[in-house]
Amino acid sequence: MTPPTTRTWSRRGHTPVVRVRGRSRRRISVAALACYKTGEPSRLIYRPCPDARPDGRKSFSWKDYRDLIQTAHQQLGAPIVLPPYAPDLNPVESVWSVLRRTTTANRAFADPDDLITAVWRGLRQLQYRPDVLDGCLTGTGLRRQPP
C-alpha cells in the first residue's frame, strides 16, 4: 500500500517524509472496459473482484470476465471488439493512469478499505466524464465519431 507520490512539499532545507504504516496482504482487482458506440458518449464499465471469495480465488476467473463482457454487450446493445493483449492498444491502461494521477496521487491510505473507497470513487467520477474517456480511446489510435 505504498502511495504513489507525484509531488509533495516541506519547509526549505527539510526532506519531506511520507509515513506508511505497513504493508497489507489484501489486494484489489478490478476489470474494466472503455466502450463507445457511434453517436453516444463513451462509457466505462467496471467490476470489482472481492478480496475474500467463497472459492478462495484472489483474482478474476473466466466466468467473471464472461459476465462483464455479457453485461457490457447488453448495456451497449452492439457487438464488442476486444483488442489483443497489448497495453498500447488498450484504452483502460490510460484510465488506470488517470486514476493514479488524480484520485490516488499524493495520498497515504489509512487502511485497505480507504484505498478501495478512493478507487471506487475515482472510477465513478470517470464514468461521468466521457471527454476523459474519449481521450483514453484516442490515445490508442481509435478514432471516435462525433455524436
Rank of each mutant, 00 (worst) to 15 (best):
R144K: 11
Q74F: 06
L126D: 04
P146K: 03
A32P: 00
R121F: 00
D134G: 00
R27E: 08
L33P: 11
K37D: 08
W62I: 08
R66S: 15
A105N: 13
R11V: 09
A86W: 01
A34K: 00
Y128M: 08
D64I: 04
Q75A: 14
E40K: 02
I69E: 13
R57I: 04
T15M: 06
N106W: 03
G56K: 09
L115N: 00
S61W: 06
V95K: 01
C49Q: 08
W62A: 13
Y36M: 12
R7L: 15
R25V: 01
S24K: 11
G139F: 00
P146F: 01
L137D: 03
L133A: 09
V95E: 02
P83C: 01
Y46M: 05
R101L: 11
S24E: 12
L137N: 10
L142Y: 14
R107Y: 07
V119R: 03
P84C: 10
P112N: 12
V81Y: 13
R25A: 10
W9M: 14
F109Q: 11
V20A: 12
D88K: 10
R43C: 07
R124F: 11
A108M: 13
R27W: 02
S10M: 07
P4W: 04
G122T: 08
N106E: 05
P147I: 14
Q70L: 09
P3E: 06
R26K: 11
T138C: 00
G77Q: 06
S29E: 12
D111V: 11
A52E: 07
S97K: 15
L137M: 04
R101W: 00
G77I: 08
P112I: 00
E40D: 00
D131Q: 09
A34G: 10
T102Y: 03
T140Q: 01
L33N: 12
P84Y: 05
P130W: 08
P87R: 02
C136S: 06
A32M: 01
Q127K: 10
L99I: 06
R43V: 06
R12T: 12
R43A: 09
R57H: 11
P41F: 08
V30D: 01
P83K: 01
A34L: 15
D88M: 10
I69V: 15
P48W: 15
Q125F: 13
R66W: 15
L44R: 02
D134H: 02
A72S: 09
C35Y: 13
K37M: 11
R57M: 08
I69P: 04
V81E: 13
V30I: 12
V119Q: 04
F109Y: 15
L115P: 05
V92R: 04
T138I: 04
I45G: 00
R26C: 02
D88P: 07
A78S: 13
R27C: 03
V119Y: 05
I69R: 15
L89E: 04
A118E: 08
T103F: 14
P41L: 00
D131H: 05
I28C: 07
S24C: 12
Y65E: 13
R19P: 00
L76W: 04
R53N: 08
F60E: 01
R7C: 09
V119G: 06
T6C: 11
P91F: 05
Y36A: 15
K63C: 11
N90Y: 03
R101S: 11
G77H: 08
D114M: 05
R12K: 15
Q145T: 14
P41G: 05
L133I: 13
G56I: 01
